[in-house]
Computed example of a mutant assay.
Amino acid sequence: MKKKLVVLGSGFGAFSAAKELDTDKFDITIVSPRNHFLFTPLLPSTTVGTIEFRSIIEPIRNIKNTVYIQALCNRIDEINNTLYCEDPDTKRTFTLGYDILIISVGEITNSYNIEGVDKYAYFLREVADARKIRSKVIDCFENASIPGLSEDEIKCYLRFVVCGGGPTGVEFAAELHDFIDEDVRKKYPDLANRIEVILIEAGTKLLNTFDEKLSEYTLKIFKRQK
């Protein structure tokens, strides 16, 4: 008799495990509020249209011989091998039993308790986040084009601040710069030279988890693009 194996999550670890596990040995169920795998390294490129959203996602239901349930897991009863889950839309709750459990649910964005971040900033973790950023960036250019604005008002619309000098922050800042240089300059010629892209990093260097040479090269390129 096949064992019931439940995978929590739909990121890199969960998606890879679900695809590689032997379905002749296990009945595999995947539980995640997100019904697709997202290739996050390319997510910043979607914010400005370099890559389209559909190119970096793959539906979980494409994994053969598995069952997918769109839900959150709120509690794990390890004694009775039971998951307490909730439909994120209807809030209906249900339980799910398992013999083997793989937990690969990822993490949440750390705002470091900085006041106002959750209210005013845009995070970049999901396709929905990228859509919001793309829409907001275009809105800023359109708003700055309204006749009668003062120079200070125009600059407020055209100052983009990216917080975090890790891979996502660096990649997004670079994509935004290229978008401004290649597209905005043609469509909004009066605004292009007023735009500021500011990258803020609390540490002493960019991409601090990568090789020192790559960090120095990235900083050199950014300084050249000022």
Rank of each mutant, 00 (worst) to 15 (best):
I76H: 04
D77E: 04
D77H: 06
D77C: 08
E78L: 14
E78M: 09
E78K: 11
I79F: 09
I79M: 02
N80A: 13
N80D: 15
N81W: 00
T82D: 12
T82G: 07
L83T: 04
L83S: 07
L83F: 02
L83E: 03
C85H: 06
C85N: 02
C85S: 01
E86K: 01
E86D: 05
E86S: 10
D87L: 04
D87Q: 04
D87Y: 08
P88C: 05
P88W: 04
D89F: 11
D89W: 05
D89C: 08
D89H: 09
T90C: 06
T90P: 12
T90L: 02
K91N: 12
K91H: 15
K91D: 09
K91S: 14
K91G: 11
R92Q: 15
R92K: 13
R92T: 15
T93C: 14
T93E: 15
T93L: 12
F94M: 03
T95C: 05
L96C: 03
L96S: 03
G97A: 08
Y98A: 14
D99R: 05
D99L: 07
D99E: 00
D99C: 06
I100D: 14
L101K: 13
L101Q: 12
L101A: 13
I103F: 10
I103W: 13
I103M: 13
I103V: 15
S104E: 08
S104I: 07
V105K: 08
V105E: 13
V105L: 14
G106I: 09
G106C: 12
E107C: 13
E107W: 10
I108V: 15
I108Q: 14
I108K: 15
I108R: 12
I108H: 12
T109I: 13
T109G: 11
T109P: 07
N110C: 14
S111R: 06
Y112D: 10
Y112A: 09
Y112P: 00
N113H: 12
I114Q: 02
I114S: 03
I114T: 03
E115Y: 10
E115D: 11
E115L: 10
G116R: 03
V117R: 02
V117N: 01
V117P: 00
D118H: 11
K119C: 00
K119Y: 07
K119I: 07
K119R: 11
A121E: 02
A121G: 09
A121L: 03
A121T: 08
F123D: 08
F123Q: 08
L124T: 00
R125G: 11
R125N: 08
E126P: 03
E126W: 01
V127K: 12
V127F: 09
A128I: 00
A128M: 04
D129A: 10
D129Q: 01
D129R: 01
A130W: 07
A130H: 04
A130R: 01
A130D: 02
R131V: 15
K132H: 02
K132N: 01
I133H: 05
I133R: 01
I133D: 04
I133F: 04
R134L: 03
R134W: 03
R134D: 04
S135I: 04
